Amino acid sequence: MNFKSIPSEFEYLSWPEVKNISKDIRSTIIWPFGAVEQHGPHLPLGTDSIFVDEIICEVFKLIPSDTPIKKLPTQYIGFSPEHKGFDGTISLSSNLITLLIKEVGIQLADMGFKRLILINAHGGQISLLNTAARELRSVAPKLSIFPCFLWKGVDGLSELLTKDEIENGLHASLAETSLMMALKSKLVGDERPCEGIKMQIPKGWSLEGNAPTAWFTEDLSKSGVIGNSKGSNKELGNSLKSLLVNHWFKLIMNLMKSDWPNQYK
């Protein structure tokens, strides 16, 4: 079968096409994860989901069509208890998210797929997806699982963003607002809050760092923003988009060109 004739979206394939692709020793599925949660008064609830979906779709435009890799529908609703104090936030339990990943992952493994990339854009569920990946591997040992965070390990971010933004822009701040302006500007409101970055944290402790605390957004902010969204602009957003797309394209192609794990040689 000619892979060039079939789409990148898993749900658009026929079952014989899935069967043919899954036989490849490098067959891979990407499953994007986001969230439906408050992102301040100026960004949509689905910000994280929109980001990961848009970036991965752009990545697939660069991937050669005969590459045995497909994309599952983006999981929009995630684990967001830290934002429950704000209307619009919908959060699934950690147990349900873990069960979802395990059930889908087991079925993909049974089909014959060799690798599953969980590409997540919501910072509040990084640890959860890492744990779920381990649990899935324990029941589907022949499936390699890669729990990844969209913003992690991306070279060049420090050249586009200030140190303050990188350290304190935790939610709906400069980077996220700018990226949404580049991707879907009509969804961005006019307000530009700056909040939640002057907390007196005990020395040596942090919100997200070496010694973090399990914070809730309402502990830090009335607007839902943690950081400074002032100065957000479409030009920065386009630069962030290019950086993210190029990073994940290179990373995914490095994997697709490899025989990892060696047991599948």
Rank of each mutant, 00 (worst) to 15 (best):
N2E: 14
S8Y: 14
E9Y: 12
F10C: 03
P16K: 07
V18Q: 07
V18D: 01
N20E: 15
S22Q: 11
S22W: 07
K23G: 07
D24N: 15
S27R: 10
T28C: 14
I29D: 02
G34E: 02
V36A: 13
H39Y: 00
H39F: 00
H42W: 00
L45H: 12
T47S: 14
I50E: 11
F51L: 15
D53C: 09
I55P: 06
I56H: 02
I56R: 01
F60P: 09
I63H: 12
I63D: 12
P64Y: 10
D66T: 06
I69F: 01
L72D: 02
T74A: 03
I77K: 01
P81C: 05
E82A: 15
H83M: 13
G85L: 03
G85H: 05
F86E: 05
F86M: 06
D87N: 13
S94Y: 09
T98Y: 09
L100V: 05
K102D: 04
V104S: 08
G105H: 09
I106R: 15
Q107L: 07
Q107F: 11
M111W: 15
M111P: 00
I117K: 06
L118C: 11
H122S: 11
G124N: 04
G124Q: 03
L129S: 06
N130I: 02
R134S: 13
R137I: 07
F146G: 05
P147S: 04
P147Y: 00
L150V: 12
G153V: 08
G153W: 08
L160G: 07
T162H: 08
E165M: 05
E165F: 03
I166K: 12
A172Y: 00
A175E: 13
T177K: 14
L179Q: 11
L179S: 11
M180Q: 15
M181T: 08
A182W: 05
L183W: 01
K186C: 02
G189N: 08
D190W: 01
R192F: 09
C194G: 03
C194R: 14
E195M: 04
G196A: 13
I197F: 02
I197Q: 06
K198W: 00
I201R: 09
I201L: 14
P202D: 12
P202E: 12
S206Y: 12
G209S: 13
G209H: 13
A211E: 05
F216Y: 11
T217V: 15
T217Q: 11
D219H: 15
D219A: 10
S221H: 08
K222T: 08
G224M: 05
V225R: 01
I226D: 01
G227N: 04
S229Y: 06
G231L: 08
L236N: 11
G237S: 07
K241P: 04
S242M: 09
L244W: 05
H247E: 10
K257S: 10
S258P: 04
W260P: 01
Y264G: 00
K265V: 07
K265C: 06
